[in-house]
Structures are given as C-alpha cells and as structure tokens.
Design a protein around this nucleic acid. Sequence first.
RNA 1: AGGCACGUAGCUCAGGGGGAGAGCGCUACCCUGACACGGUAGAAGUCGUGAGUUCAAAUCUCACCGUGCCUACCA
Length: 887
Amino acid sequence: MNSKLLGKGYEPHDVERRWYDFWEKEKLFAADDESSAESYSIVIPPPNVTGVLHMGHALNNTLQDILCRYRRLRGDNVLWMPGTDHAGIATQNVVEKALAEEGKDRHQLGREKFIEAVWAWRERYGSAIINQLKRLGASCDWDRERFTMDEGLSRAVRKVFVELYNQGLIYRGNYIINWCHRCHTALADLEVEYEEHNGHLYYIRYPFTDNSGGIVVATTRPETMLGDTAVAINPADERYQDLTSDTVILPLMDRQIPIIKDAYVDMSFGTGGLKVTPAHDPNDFEIAERHHLASVKVIGDDGNMTSEAGKFAGMDRFECRDAVVKALEKEGVLEKIEHYAHSIGHCYRCKTIVEPNLSRQWFVNVKPLAEKAIMAVQKGETKIVPDIWTKTYYNWMNNIRDWVISRQIWWGHQIPAWTCKACDEVIVSMEAPTTCSKCGGEKLVQETDVLDTWFSSALWPFSTMGWPDDTQLLKTFYPTSVLVTGFDILFFWVARMMMMGIHFMGDVPFTDVYVHALVRDEDGQKMSKSKGNVIDPLTIIENYGTDAFRFTLAAFAAQGRDIKMSERRVEGYRHFVNKLWNAARFALMHLNQSYDKIDDDHLSLPDRWILSRLNRVINSTADALDTYRFNDAASELYNFVWHEFCDWYLEAVKPALYGKKGEGQKEAALGVLWHTLHDILVLLHPFMPFVTEEIWHKLPGTRGSIMKAAYPSDRADAADIVRDKDVESQMTLLIDMISGIRNIRGEMNISPSLALQVWVQSTDHATSETIHCHQDVVINLARLKSLHVSNTAERPKSSATAVVDGATIFVSLEGIIDFAKESERLEKEINKLSNELAKVSIKLENKAFLNKAPAHVVEDVKEKHARLLERKQKLRTNLDRIKEIET
RNA sequence: AGGCACGUAGCUCAGGGGGAGAGCGCUACCCUGACACGGUAGAAGUCGUGAGUUCAAAUCUCACCGUGCCUACCA
C-alpha cells in the first residue's frame, strides 16, 4: 500500500513550483523547428513590459495554455511563442515618472541616455510579467522569448517601413491628428477614449465690419476662436440669404475673416453659424481644404497658447478659455452660455484631454491593405470565433481611415528616414545612409519620431519567427493555428496583423481567431485601478492554487459573454481539485501496478458503466476543445469526475477492491480504476496541469511527465474503452433504485446506520434479471440487509414505496413506519407525477400534435405518458393501502 | 444617433423549438475504513413584459422595459 504518498488535502504551492521547474528543465515546452508531426502554433499577445498580470492576461493565457497542452497530448509539434511589447508611450511614462522622483527629466538626460535608462529599467523590471505567466503554468517556449525592440524585430520593422514607403503606402503630411499634451505626442484615432462630460456651449457674435449685427456661432471650446479663419453657413440656410457683407470681424483678434458657404454646416444646430478653426478641428480642417483657408495654430504642442494667440500667448489652454470668455463678455459679443453635455477625447495612456492638432506626421494608407484583410475573412482563410465578431471586424475595416504611425517620443523604433540638410531630400532606408542620394551631401539628419508600438506588434506573428529571413521556423509554423485575444484589441492588433501578414507573407497570420470575453468584477463593472475593484490573479493563485483558478477561468469562458469574476466560484473549484486529489489518494491505496489490458471476463456492471461513460467524456471533451468551447469541456470533466467517477463508481467498486468479490473481480476493478484515473489525469491536464502531474508521478506504471502522455482516444488500447448503451441503461436502473430507497430513508428520518429490508416487484423479465444479477450493488449503496426480487405482489405489511421504470420497490418499515409521514410522502410524489402527466396528456389530446409532429416525438410522448401513468398508479395503490391500514 | 449583446433558482452563470440545469448559498440527517474542501436527501424559477409564427416557444420573429458594450458625431 502506498497511501502515504498522498497527503489528506491537496497543497498547491510546493507542487506548482516543483513541477514548473521540472518542465522547464526538461525542455518540455520546446517546439521543434522541423518535425514530421503536425504543427500547432500560437503567438502570445505580448503583454507590455511595464505590465503586471491582470485578470485579462490570466484568462487569455490560460486559454492558450489549455490549447497548447491539449495539442501536445494529441501529438502535435506545438510552438507557443512568448514575448513582450515595448509599449512606447506607457513605458516612457513609467521611466519618466521614476526619473521625476530623482528630480530629473528626460531632456536633462538627452535622448541617448534616456533610452539607456529605459533599457536598464527593462532589465530590472521587464521580466515581472513573464514570471507571473509562469505562475499561471503557461507552457511557452521560453527559450524563444522575443521583445519588440530586439534587433531582429527592429530589422523587421525597418524593412516593413521601407517597403511600404517605396510602395507609396506610407507618406508624410500635415494633417489634423489627436494630440496629447502630457505625453507630447500624436495619437491614432483608436488611441483616444471618449467620455461624456458636462460642459458649456458658448454663443459668440462675430460682428460685421461696421460692428453691427453679425453672425452668432456656438462653440464648446471658446479659446480656439483665436485661431478662426472663417465663419461658415449652410448655402441653403434662409436666415442668411440676405447678407450684405461677406466678411465678419473676429472678436479679440480684430481680424477680418470671410463668411463661407459649405453644405457640411448643420442648419439645425445652434444658430446655423459655424466658426472654422482649421488647426484645431478635423472637420474644420476639411472645410479649410475645400475653401483654401489658412490655418492658424493657437494651441501649442505643450498645451500653452502660441504667439498666434495675441495677448493670450503663453497662457495655459484651460486658463485661456476663462480669459477668452471674460474678454468676450467685456466686448459684449458673448450672447449666452448654455449647459451642454458632450463627449471629450482622452489619451488612452494618461487620460489627459487630447486636442485635435494640426501637425506633420507619418501615415499609412491602410485602405488597400484592409481590402485584402476583409477578403481573407470572407474567403474563410481566417475564421473568427465566435462568428459574431466577424461583422464588427468588417464594419471597422470598411470604415478604416489612414493610420498615424509617428509618435513624438523617444522610446520606440526611430523612423528610418533621413533628411539631407543640403537639398531637403528625404531618404528612407534600412540602414543609415552616409550620403544623400540626390545631391551627395553628407549632412543627413534622421527623423526623431518613433513608430507607434502597434506598428511593430502588427508584425508579431512573423517577426518573432525570424522574418525577413526565410527561416525554418516560419516554414514550420506560419500561419499560426489560432490567435487568442480579447475583443478590446481586435482593431488595435488583430486587424493590423491581418493586414501586415497578408501583405508581407502572402498569407494570413492565423487560421482561427478566438475572441474571448472581458473579465469584469462581480457587478459586471470593468476592473480598473481607479475604481478599486481589481482582483489580483496572483492573490487568487495564492489563496486557491493555480489549478483551481485556471479551471474557474475555463468554466467561465462561455463564448460571447463577459466574465464576472467571483471568488466563490474559485473556491468551489478548489474543492474540485481536492476531490480529484482524494479520489486519487483512494485509488492509490489499492493500486500497486499498472494495467495494460482490461480483464474483460470479470468486469462488473459499474466497471463497464464507467468505461462507457469515460468513452463519452473523452470524445466530448476533445470536441469541445476543438471548437473553443472551454466551458463545456470543463463542465463535462467536472461532472464526470465528481458525479460519475467519485459518487457512483468508486462507491460501487469498494467491495470488490476490499476483496469481498474474489480475486478475479478485484483485479478487473483495479484495471478499470487504473485506466479511468489515468485517463482522467490526461483529460484534466490541460486545465489543471500541476495537480495532474503530481498524481501522475504517483500512479504506478507511468514514466516521465504527463505532458508526454497520449490523449486517450489516440492510444493503441483506445478500442478497449467503448460506449455501451445497454450497460448505461442497466446502471441507470440501479441508480434510480438506490436513489429511491435513499429518498425514503431521508424523508422518513431513518438512521443511516439501520440496514433495510427491501422487496422488489417486477413483471418485466429484463428488469428483474438486471436487478437480480447486480443486487449486490444496490445492497451495498442503499445499505440493505436483504433484497428480494419477485414477479408477485409479495411485500412486507408495513412498507414505504418507491417506483422506478419497470419495478416497484417496497422498503420494509416493520415497527418503525410513520403512516402519516408515508402518506404525505406518497402524496407529494403523486402530485409531482400528476403535474407532469397533465402536461403530457394535453399534448396527446391535441389532434394537431398527433398529426403534425414527427412520429418519433409522438412515440416518445406516448411512452412517457405510459411510464408516468404506471408509476402514478402504483403509488396510488400503495397510498390507498397505507390509508386503509392507518384507519 | 446607429449597431451588438444580455435579462433563466437568493447569488454567479450554462442551455437554446418537444421532459427547467450547474456551482455557491439554504434546510434536514450523517465525522460510513479517499475526501466535512466530504456524503445522502430536500426546498426553491409564470426562463424581463406583451404580442406573433408553430401541432409545440425559455428557445424563433417583432415591439417594449431594463442592463452593458462598441462605433460614429458632437459647433
């Protein structure tokens, strides 16, 4: 007996550390660059180097790990490519903050020293999130870990930039972009978050040159009026048909500006007069283009007013707003102020209010790339799961606008463009040029801007595999099998990877995209630090163990639904881990060897039954995982292990295991027990890698890591485990009988220790045969003194009755029966049956149903009706008897 | 403004045209030689509201109410 090998309760911490080290040491996560096995690959959504593991990461990586571990068990050559993202703005912010604490800023250091400081920071803290992923059990091929700023990936970035530039898909120009004054950089449209805000709408009168009348405009940002270069009205607006002047005076600046007519102006808004500020509003910018208006930039890149702002120059933009309002009031041109709710854009990194700003930036013309990315999904080259996201993907791709890729920060891939000081020629090239290709000049200055981080992440599926070199890794693993991600980065990342992958690799980056839900708190709120509702995955791991946590995430991961994280649920699954542990503990008390072959001759009904059920769960789990139904797989396994294996099988075979059924049955049961536990461990391993590995090593006959095991249905002996419906229905009969007797015991308050005498009456030969053959199972599990089976109405005088299909059960209660209680119990049962019977009867009385419903449905309902009726009548007979005795 | 999802037991959620399910919680009994992180039994839902399609609707359609999210606009 080796029962001492397992402790009474499962203690995760030591086990987790031990096996993770073992897996790493044994290189069990390593992919083969070249292998005859089928390839399966996933690239990790690279977390930010500055990041700490949150629930989103935990879910995302747990799902990927389940897939990877599952595919390994299926014999695939699996590559899970790990790495991190340099997160330009976020990381720069973090390092700047650290510098600020030392009283320094980046400008004092200079660009080069600052970059060094960021690298140093990365050395020190950058592996935090990687270590946290390891605690989750993530089986990434860590030897291949990549970073978007690595030399290899940087080369890919330069290559892509140069090619897109040469193809005319990257250009530089002056356009309105979103500007964050705090991060001091341009932001892409996607990087702006809008939030509802209670502001004001200011009505300002721009008088005619003679200071009379004029046009009233409305604005939420009065300070921008300093940069107005026109007032626009709708050409169809009747209010302005009789204008005598075609100019107005811009108040405070005393500038004469034109009145222009443009159909863009919404006549129903405000007064129908629109102030035009081309440098600070995207729509105004477009109007200005159409009407060839000048642009006056009054808000500077630092958030202060520029010299163009006249006497307001140098003022902070918000202070200026108040000052302008006061000044307008003083001039008597402020008509009114209304309360006005509107949404304002904020920087997604630092939450500062962003300003549309005219600026010279680099852009990607994404339309041509997007078209191919749409086609690829339409043609099914990439499948988005669940399908619901496909529409969102199309919608966004169809309305896509050019992408600003330049950022005015230091940390990132510096744009590989140089300007010749002598002739202003722009040279874009992989390596720094020494002379100007046009004039031969030697004074070349590199563009100071860096690229958007997402520009490099867009290349992730192939840059991590060595592109632009033609590597073996790419040949084996590109396109990747699936991308697992949250919908929040569907556009930021997935769409852009699609575009770049197709353009540069000539093939989609992944064949499937599995989009999972967002993890929210128990009330459905998005977790955020500011709300203080963040649940730290590492705390959960500390308290409940990684396996319980992972299983919870899988069980919660129903498609198309957000996940509301509940600690209670994790606790529940911790109990499940412990249940498995104890089932194994019990099994290992009896198992001293492995069993290659199941002894068919001595199998009991429970043995055959559990093998049949095992066969079902093997197939349904595989099916669920193949279609990304993680929650289905998890609940199948949960129910099988707890409610079939533990509750029924283990209890049923105890007598055999304790040698009460002879050596033959004992050995047969041991064989089944070994097989079932063995397969349970393998099936559960993707979800609960640690506890399964721990038990695996205690199970006799296993060699090496469970990671090297074969999925049950792929094994040579898989044929031994077959589904047998006959066996299942026989076992169901026994289970129903036992439950019926237990119900009587419970309801009648009969002590569990009292062994009962039971008479079973059945006129159905097959039923009585089954009961007779397997009566030991019933006697054992229902705690009986005796069980008599007959086809006559032989029964004890004082008894309680239960009914199953094909048989009536009489539990002798000689001397202890409480007639009133038994009547009550029977009446309750009869009531239940009557209710069900009523529903069924309605159907059968409905001629339309009998005529139109499919024959098998009608047949089913008739059968059910007969069954219910039989049961009810039997109970009724016994109730009558009881009442007779009682009176 | 447009779009998408969701409203099922006290709580958290599965299910998805023909017998209402799970976990937690609750009630009663039980420390039965794996497990009290356990066992056995039990109570509990007009499946948001209203209409329609159908022989049959929790399930499909529409409207409404409520919740959440996404996209766009916002002078």
